[in-house]
Design a binder for these strands. Structure first.
Length: 132
DNA sequence: ATGGTGACTCGCG
DNA sequence: GCGCGAGCCACCA
């Protein structure tokens, strides 16, 4: 399932970070879609896990919450998926609004407007899996 | 190797 | 639309 040559050598986390960095400002995508782009249809949870594991900006590591636009990843329903008690939830909404994404008070985002579909491979996978 | 843990998703009711 | 239960996955003790 290594669709991108050389990519399979990277850890799953890094693959997730690289894909996230492809999301244009003002757009969002879902954990599940990123999983699909990586050829792992059911690895949505792992994607969320990877993003939650991002290190602090001052950690000196290559992938941090500052170099990876984690805020552009929401759940499949277009909703901020972090538990509302967590400060990161409010931060995600603020970051998104700052780049022009409309987020309502319930953390909901209109995917018809802001969805980044990513690679065409995603759509293809949908069709082959019986949706078309 | 094994079991626990989520920033997931889907199907039901 | 919401809460549950049940799969599914990569990591880490």
């Amino acid at each position: 399932m290594d669709k991108i040559p050389g990519m399979s050598k990277l850890s799953f986390y890094v693959q997730v970070y690289k894909v996230a960095q492809q999301i244009p400002p003002g757009k969002v995508t879902s954990y599940g879609r990123i999983a699909l782009m990586l050829g792992r249809r059911n690895a949505a949870r792992a994607v969320g896990y990877a993003l939650s594991a991002l290190s602090a900006p001052d950690s000196g590591e290559p992938y941090t919450s500052a170099t990876v636009p984690w805020q552009r990843v929401v759940n499949n329903k277009g909703r901020i998926s972090i538990h509302s008690r967590d400060k990161a939830a409010a931060e995600q909404a603020n970051l998104l609004r700052a780049e022009g994404v409309m987020v309502d008070e319930h953390g909901r985002i209109n995917l018809d407007i802001y969805l980044w579909e990513g690679l065409h491979l995603v759509e293809l996978d949908d069709i082959l899996s019986g949706k078309g």
